[in-house]
Protein backbone atom coordinates (compact mmCIF):
# COMPACT_ATOMS: atom_id res chain seq x y z
CA UNK A 1 0.00 0.00 0.00
CA UNK A 2 2.78 2.37 0.98
CA UNK A 3 4.53 1.24 -2.18
CA UNK A 4 1.49 2.17 -4.29
CA UNK A 5 1.12 5.52 -2.61
CA UNK A 6 4.78 6.34 -3.05
CA UNK A 7 4.65 5.38 -6.73
CA UNK A 8 1.63 7.68 -7.09
CA UNK A 9 3.49 10.46 -5.36
CA UNK A 10 6.43 9.81 -7.61
CA UNK A 11 4.41 10.01 -10.80
CA UNK A 12 1.97 12.93 -10.43
CA UNK A 13 3.99 15.87 -9.16
CA UNK A 14 7.25 14.99 -10.89
CA UNK A 15 5.32 14.71 -14.18
CA UNK A 16 4.15 18.28 -13.65
CA UNK A 17 7.76 19.22 -12.86
CA UNK A 18 8.95 17.61 -16.09
CA UNK A 19 6.27 19.50 -18.03
CA UNK A 20 7.47 22.81 -16.59
CA UNK A 21 11.08 21.90 -17.41
CA UNK A 22 10.24 21.00 -21.01
CA UNK A 23 8.38 24.31 -21.30
CA UNK A 24 11.40 26.25 -20.04
CA UNK A 25 13.65 24.24 -22.36
CA UNK A 26 11.27 24.99 -25.23
CA UNK A 27 11.42 28.73 -24.61
CA UNK A 28 15.20 28.49 -24.53
CA UNK A 29 15.19 26.55 -27.82
CA UNK A 30 13.01 29.20 -29.51
CA UNK A 31 15.28 31.94 -28.15
CA UNK A 32 18.31 30.20 -29.63
CA UNK A 33 16.57 29.76 -32.98
CA UNK A 34 15.65 26.05 -32.89
CA UNK A 35 12.23 24.49 -33.32
CA UNK A 36 11.26 22.96 -29.96
CA UNK A 37 8.87 20.46 -31.56
CA UNK A 38 11.56 19.15 -33.91
CA UNK A 39 14.16 19.08 -31.15
CA UNK A 40 11.92 17.30 -28.65
CA UNK A 41 10.69 14.92 -31.36
CA UNK A 42 14.25 13.92 -32.18
CA UNK A 43 15.00 13.65 -28.49
CA UNK A 44 12.05 11.33 -27.84
CA UNK A 45 13.01 9.13 -30.78
CA UNK A 46 16.60 9.17 -29.58
CA UNK A 47 15.56 7.91 -26.16
CA UNK A 48 12.83 5.40 -27.09
CA UNK A 49 12.62 5.24 -30.91
CA UNK A 50 14.08 1.77 -31.40
CA UNK A 51 15.19 -1.25 -29.44
CA UNK A 52 18.73 0.05 -29.60
CA UNK A 53 17.71 3.52 -28.39
CA UNK A 54 15.84 1.98 -25.47
CA UNK A 55 18.87 -0.14 -24.62
CA UNK A 56 21.12 2.94 -24.67
CA UNK A 57 18.66 4.77 -22.41
CA UNK A 58 18.68 1.89 -19.92
CA UNK A 59 22.48 1.76 -20.08
CA UNK A 60 22.61 5.41 -19.02
CA UNK A 61 19.98 4.77 -16.35
CA UNK A 62 21.96 1.91 -14.79
CA UNK A 63 24.60 3.96 -12.93
CA UNK A 64 21.96 6.56 -12.03
CA UNK A 65 19.70 3.93 -10.42
CA UNK A 66 22.63 2.40 -8.53
CA UNK A 67 23.89 5.76 -7.27
CA UNK A 68 20.40 7.11 -6.59
CA UNK A 69 19.43 4.07 -4.50
CA UNK A 70 22.52 4.45 -2.34
CA UNK A 71 22.07 8.18 -1.95
CA UNK A 72 18.45 7.64 -0.92
CA UNK A 73 19.81 5.72 2.08
CA UNK A 74 22.31 8.48 2.91
CA UNK A 75 19.83 11.33 2.52
CA UNK A 76 17.16 9.52 4.56
CA UNK A 77 19.78 9.09 7.29
CA UNK A 78 20.42 12.83 7.28
CA UNK A 79 23.94 12.71 5.82
CA UNK A 80 24.53 14.77 2.67
CA UNK A 81 26.80 12.69 0.51
CA UNK A 82 27.72 14.91 -2.45
CA UNK A 83 30.63 12.58 -3.24
CA UNK A 84 29.06 9.87 -5.40
CA UNK A 85 31.13 11.01 -8.37
CA UNK A 86 34.38 10.38 -6.48
CA UNK A 87 33.06 7.11 -5.05
CA UNK A 88 32.20 5.99 -8.58
CA UNK A 89 35.79 6.66 -9.65
CA UNK A 90 37.14 4.84 -6.59
CA UNK A 91 35.00 1.85 -7.59
CA UNK A 92 36.05 2.00 -11.23
CA UNK A 93 39.74 2.03 -10.28
CA UNK A 94 39.43 -1.01 -8.01
CA UNK A 95 37.29 -2.90 -10.52
CA UNK A 96 39.79 -2.23 -13.30
CA UNK A 97 42.67 -3.38 -11.11
CA UNK A 98 40.82 -6.61 -10.27
CA UNK A 99 39.94 -7.14 -13.93
CA UNK A 100 43.55 -6.70 -15.03
CA UNK A 101 45.25 -8.66 -12.24
CA UNK A 102 43.06 -11.77 -11.89
CA UNK A 103 43.08 -12.68 -15.58
CA UNK A 104 43.21 -16.44 -15.02
CA UNK A 105 39.92 -16.74 -13.17
CA UNK A 106 36.75 -18.08 -14.80
CA UNK A 107 33.91 -15.61 -15.43
CA UNK A 108 31.59 -16.89 -12.68
CA UNK A 109 34.26 -15.99 -10.13
CA UNK A 110 35.91 -13.00 -11.80
CA UNK A 111 32.71 -11.00 -12.45
CA UNK A 112 31.66 -11.04 -8.77
CA UNK A 113 35.25 -10.29 -7.71
CA UNK A 114 35.35 -7.22 -9.96
CA UNK A 115 31.96 -5.96 -8.76
CA UNK A 116 32.74 -6.55 -5.09
CA UNK A 117 36.12 -4.81 -5.47
CA UNK A 118 34.36 -1.78 -6.92
CA UNK A 119 31.68 -1.69 -4.24
CA UNK A 120 34.21 -2.10 -1.41
CA UNK A 121 36.44 0.62 -2.78
CA UNK A 122 33.52 3.02 -3.11
CA UNK A 123 32.33 2.12 0.38
CA UNK A 124 35.77 2.90 1.81
CA UNK A 125 36.00 6.21 -0.06
CA UNK A 126 32.53 7.19 1.19
CA UNK A 127 33.21 5.73 4.63
CA UNK A 128 36.25 8.02 4.94
CA UNK A 129 33.94 11.05 4.78
CA UNK A 130 31.66 9.34 7.29
CA UNK A 131 34.61 8.75 9.62
CA UNK A 132 35.73 12.39 9.35
CA UNK A 133 32.17 13.44 10.18
CA UNK A 134 31.72 11.17 13.17
CA UNK A 135 35.23 11.46 14.60
CA UNK A 136 36.10 15.10 13.82
CA UNK A 137 32.76 16.73 13.11
CA UNK A 138 33.87 17.60 9.58
CA UNK A 139 30.99 18.70 7.33
CA UNK A 140 30.34 15.81 4.95
CA UNK A 141 29.19 18.24 2.28
CA UNK A 142 32.67 19.75 2.12
CA UNK A 143 34.69 16.56 2.66
CA UNK A 144 32.82 14.59 0.01
CA UNK A 145 33.35 17.42 -2.47
CA UNK A 146 37.09 17.37 -1.68
CA UNK A 147 37.14 13.57 -2.03
CA UNK A 148 35.50 13.96 -5.47
CA UNK A 149 38.37 16.12 -6.64
CA UNK A 150 40.92 13.76 -5.10
CA UNK A 151 39.43 10.63 -6.70
CA UNK A 152 39.29 12.27 -10.13
CA UNK A 153 42.87 13.56 -9.83
CA UNK A 154 44.05 10.16 -8.60
CA UNK A 155 42.40 8.48 -11.58
CA UNK A 156 44.09 10.94 -13.90
CA UNK A 157 47.43 10.11 -12.27
CA UNK A 158 46.87 6.34 -12.49
CA UNK A 159 45.85 6.25 -16.15
CA UNK A 160 48.68 8.53 -17.26
CA UNK A 161 51.31 6.86 -15.04
CA UNK A 162 51.34 3.58 -13.15
CA UNK A 163 48.34 1.95 -14.85
CA UNK A 164 48.84 3.21 -18.41
CA UNK A 165 48.44 0.55 -21.12
CA UNK A 166 51.61 -1.12 -22.42
CA UNK A 167 50.93 -0.52 -26.09
CA UNK A 168 49.50 2.56 -27.71
CA UNK A 169 50.30 4.78 -24.77
CA UNK A 170 46.95 6.51 -24.72
CA UNK A 171 46.06 7.82 -21.26
CA UNK A 172 44.03 4.70 -20.48
CA UNK A 173 44.58 1.32 -18.86
CA UNK A 174 44.81 -2.01 -20.61
CA UNK A 175 41.56 -3.88 -21.25
CA UNK A 176 40.20 -5.96 -18.41
CA UNK A 177 40.08 -9.74 -18.89
CA UNK A 178 37.33 -11.01 -21.17
CA UNK A 179 36.05 -13.17 -18.32
CA UNK A 180 35.36 -9.98 -16.33
CA UNK A 181 32.89 -8.61 -18.91
CA UNK A 182 29.25 -8.48 -17.82
CA UNK A 183 27.02 -10.71 -19.97
CA UNK A 184 24.81 -8.89 -22.49
CA UNK A 185 21.07 -9.44 -22.11
CA UNK A 186 19.62 -7.98 -25.31
CA UNK A 187 21.95 -8.83 -28.19
CA UNK A 188 22.67 -7.06 -30.55
CA UNK A 189 22.33 -4.01 -28.24
CA UNK A 190 24.96 -3.21 -25.62
CA UNK A 191 22.51 -3.63 -22.73
CA UNK A 192 24.13 -5.79 -20.07
CA UNK A 193 23.18 -7.55 -16.88
CA UNK A 194 24.24 -4.47 -14.88
CA UNK A 195 20.80 -2.98 -15.53
CA UNK A 196 19.10 -5.91 -13.80
CA UNK A 197 21.64 -5.59 -11.01
CA UNK A 198 20.65 -1.94 -10.54
CA UNK A 199 16.99 -2.95 -10.20
CA UNK A 200 18.04 -5.52 -7.61
CA UNK A 201 20.05 -2.97 -5.66
CA UNK A 202 17.08 -0.56 -5.71
CA UNK A 203 14.82 -3.31 -4.34
CA UNK A 204 17.31 -4.29 -1.64
CA UNK A 205 17.87 -0.70 -0.49
CA UNK A 206 14.10 -0.18 -0.45
CA UNK A 207 13.66 -3.21 1.81
CA UNK A 208 16.56 -2.09 3.98
CA UNK A 209 15.19 1.44 4.41
CA UNK A 210 11.50 0.76 4.82
CA UNK A 211 11.09 -2.89 5.85
CA UNK A 212 13.90 -3.54 8.32
CA UNK A 213 14.63 -2.39 11.84
CA UNK A 214 18.06 -1.16 10.77
CA UNK A 215 16.43 1.02 8.14
CA UNK A 216 13.99 2.31 10.72
CA UNK A 217 16.93 3.22 12.94
CA UNK A 218 18.67 5.01 10.05
CA UNK A 219 15.56 7.00 9.20
CA UNK A 220 15.19 7.94 12.86
CA UNK A 221 18.75 9.24 12.84
CA UNK A 222 17.84 11.26 9.77
CA UNK A 223 14.72 12.79 11.25
CA UNK A 224 16.10 13.50 14.71
CA UNK A 225 19.54 12.43 15.93
CA UNK A 226 18.47 13.34 19.48
CA UNK A 227 15.45 11.09 19.40
CA UNK A 228 17.60 8.33 17.90
CA UNK A 229 20.17 8.66 20.66
CA UNK A 230 17.40 8.65 23.28
CA UNK A 231 16.09 5.44 21.75
CA UNK A 232 19.51 3.87 22.18
CA UNK A 233 20.55 4.04 18.52
CA UNK A 234 24.26 4.53 17.87
CA UNK A 235 24.05 7.67 15.71
CA UNK A 236 27.72 7.69 14.71
CA UNK A 237 27.59 4.09 13.55
CA UNK A 238 24.39 4.82 11.64
CA UNK A 239 25.98 7.74 9.78
CA UNK A 240 29.07 5.64 8.98
CA UNK A 241 26.88 2.83 7.66
CA UNK A 242 24.84 5.24 5.54
CA UNK A 243 28.00 6.70 4.01
CA UNK A 244 29.46 3.25 3.37
CA UNK A 245 26.23 1.99 1.75
CA UNK A 246 25.87 5.01 -0.52
CA UNK A 247 29.58 4.94 -1.35
CA UNK A 248 29.36 1.21 -2.04
CA UNK A 249 26.45 1.68 -4.45
CA UNK A 250 28.35 4.42 -6.30
CA UNK A 251 31.49 2.25 -6.37
CA UNK A 252 29.41 -0.58 -7.80
CA UNK A 253 28.19 1.82 -10.49
CA UNK A 254 31.84 2.50 -11.37
CA UNK A 255 32.57 -1.24 -11.52
CA UNK A 256 29.50 -1.84 -13.72
CA UNK A 257 30.59 0.90 -16.14
CA UNK A 258 34.03 -0.70 -16.46
CA UNK A 259 32.94 -4.32 -16.69
CA UNK A 260 29.81 -3.73 -18.74
CA UNK A 261 30.66 -0.90 -21.10
CA UNK A 262 34.15 0.60 -21.29
CA UNK A 263 36.22 -2.52 -20.36
CA UNK A 264 39.04 -0.20 -19.31
CA UNK A 265 39.65 2.90 -17.22
CA UNK A 266 40.34 6.38 -18.57
CA UNK A 267 39.89 9.99 -17.44
CA UNK A 268 36.33 11.22 -17.56
CA UNK A 269 34.80 7.75 -17.48
CA UNK A 270 31.73 9.31 -15.84
CA UNK A 271 29.98 12.25 -17.53
CA UNK A 272 28.77 13.40 -14.10
CA UNK A 273 26.61 10.42 -13.09
CA UNK A 274 27.49 11.08 -9.46
CA UNK A 275 25.96 14.54 -9.59
CA UNK A 276 22.94 13.50 -11.65
CA UNK A 277 22.43 10.71 -9.12
CA UNK A 278 21.86 13.33 -6.41
CA UNK A 279 19.02 14.79 -8.47
CA UNK A 280 17.68 11.30 -9.24
CA UNK A 281 17.49 10.42 -5.53
CA UNK A 282 15.99 13.74 -4.47
CA UNK A 283 13.40 13.75 -7.24
CA UNK A 284 12.27 10.30 -6.08
CA UNK A 285 11.85 11.72 -2.57
CA UNK A 286 14.66 9.37 -1.53
CA UNK A 287 12.65 6.25 -2.20
CA UNK A 288 14.73 3.59 -4.03
CA UNK A 289 11.69 2.27 -5.93
CA UNK A 290 11.01 5.78 -7.14
CA UNK A 291 14.69 6.04 -8.06
CA UNK A 292 14.11 3.40 -10.75
CA UNK A 293 11.65 5.76 -12.48
CA UNK A 294 13.59 8.98 -12.00
CA UNK A 295 16.78 7.17 -13.01
CA UNK A 296 15.21 6.04 -16.28
CA UNK A 297 13.81 9.56 -16.80
CA UNK A 298 17.26 11.13 -16.41
CA UNK A 299 18.86 8.36 -18.48
CA UNK A 300 16.34 9.00 -21.25
CA UNK A 301 16.97 12.75 -21.14
CA UNK A 302 20.69 12.12 -21.41
CA UNK A 303 20.63 9.59 -24.24
CA UNK A 304 17.86 11.50 -26.08
CA UNK A 305 19.83 14.74 -25.90
CA UNK A 306 22.89 13.07 -27.39
CA UNK A 307 20.86 11.96 -30.40
CA UNK A 308 19.30 15.45 -30.54
CA UNK A 309 22.76 16.96 -30.80
CA UNK A 310 23.74 14.54 -33.55
CA UNK A 311 20.56 14.74 -35.64
CA UNK A 312 19.17 18.21 -34.91
CA UNK A 313 22.43 20.04 -34.06
CA UNK A 314 20.95 21.25 -30.77
CA UNK A 315 23.64 21.41 -28.05
CA UNK A 316 23.10 18.41 -25.73
CA UNK A 317 23.87 20.54 -22.67
CA UNK A 318 20.23 21.60 -22.85
CA UNK A 319 19.62 18.44 -20.84
CA UNK A 320 21.29 19.96 -17.76
CA UNK A 321 18.88 22.89 -17.88
CA UNK A 322 15.93 20.53 -18.17
CA UNK A 323 17.20 18.36 -15.31
CA UNK A 324 17.86 21.39 -13.13
CA UNK A 325 14.44 22.91 -13.80
CA UNK A 326 12.81 19.55 -13.07
CA UNK A 327 14.45 19.66 -9.64
CA UNK A 328 13.58 23.32 -9.06
CA UNK A 329 9.93 22.93 -9.97
CA UNK A 330 9.69 19.71 -8.00
CA UNK A 331 11.09 21.66 -5.03
CA UNK A 332 8.54 24.42 -5.61
CA UNK A 333 5.67 21.89 -5.81
CA UNK A 334 6.69 20.51 -2.44
CA UNK A 335 7.78 17.06 -3.57
CA UNK A 336 10.50 16.94 -0.93
CA UNK A 337 9.40 16.64 2.65
CA UNK A 338 12.83 16.03 4.10
CA UNK A 339 14.72 18.75 5.93
CA UNK A 340 18.30 18.94 7.02
CA UNK A 341 18.44 17.98 10.65
CA UNK A 342 19.55 20.55 13.15
CA UNK A 343 23.35 20.47 13.14
CA UNK A 344 23.58 21.40 16.80
CA UNK A 345 21.68 18.30 17.76
CA UNK A 346 24.30 16.12 16.18
CA UNK A 347 27.04 17.18 18.59
Amino acid sequence: MQLLRSIGQIIVRPTAAVAVALLVGGILLIFAGYSPLTAYGVMWKGAFGSMNNIAETLLKSTPLILIGSGLAVAFRSGIWNIGAEGQLYAGAVAATLAGIIFTGLPAFILVPVVLVAGALSGALWGGLAGFLKVRFGASEIVTTIMLNFLAIIATSFLVTGPMIEEVGKFPQTAQIAEAAHLPRILVPTRLHVGFLLSLGVAAVTYLLLFKSSRGYALRTVGISPDAARYAGINVGRGLLAAMAISGGAAGLAGAVEVSGLTFRLYQGISPGYGFDGIAVALLANNNPIGVIFTGILFGALRSGSEVMQMNAQVPSVLVSVIQGVVLLSAAAFGVFKITITNKQNEE
Binding site: W80, I141, F275, I278, A279, L282, S320, V321, Q323, G324, V325, L327, L328, A330, A331, F336, I338, T339, I340
Partner: peptide, 11 residues
Amino acid sequence: NQIVVGAAFNL
Protein backbone atom coordinates in the same frame (compact mmCIF):
# COMPACT_ATOMS: atom_id res chain seq x y z
CA ASN B 1 15.20 21.95 0.78
CA GLN B 2 18.34 24.06 0.35
CA ILE B 3 20.49 21.18 -0.89
CA VAL B 4 17.94 20.31 -3.58
CA VAL B 5 17.72 23.88 -4.82
CA GLY B 6 21.50 24.28 -4.68
CA ALA B 7 22.06 21.08 -6.66
CA ALA B 8 19.51 22.30 -9.22
CA PHE B 9 21.27 25.67 -9.49
CA ASN B 10 24.50 23.91 -10.38
CA LEU B 11 22.78 21.94 -13.14
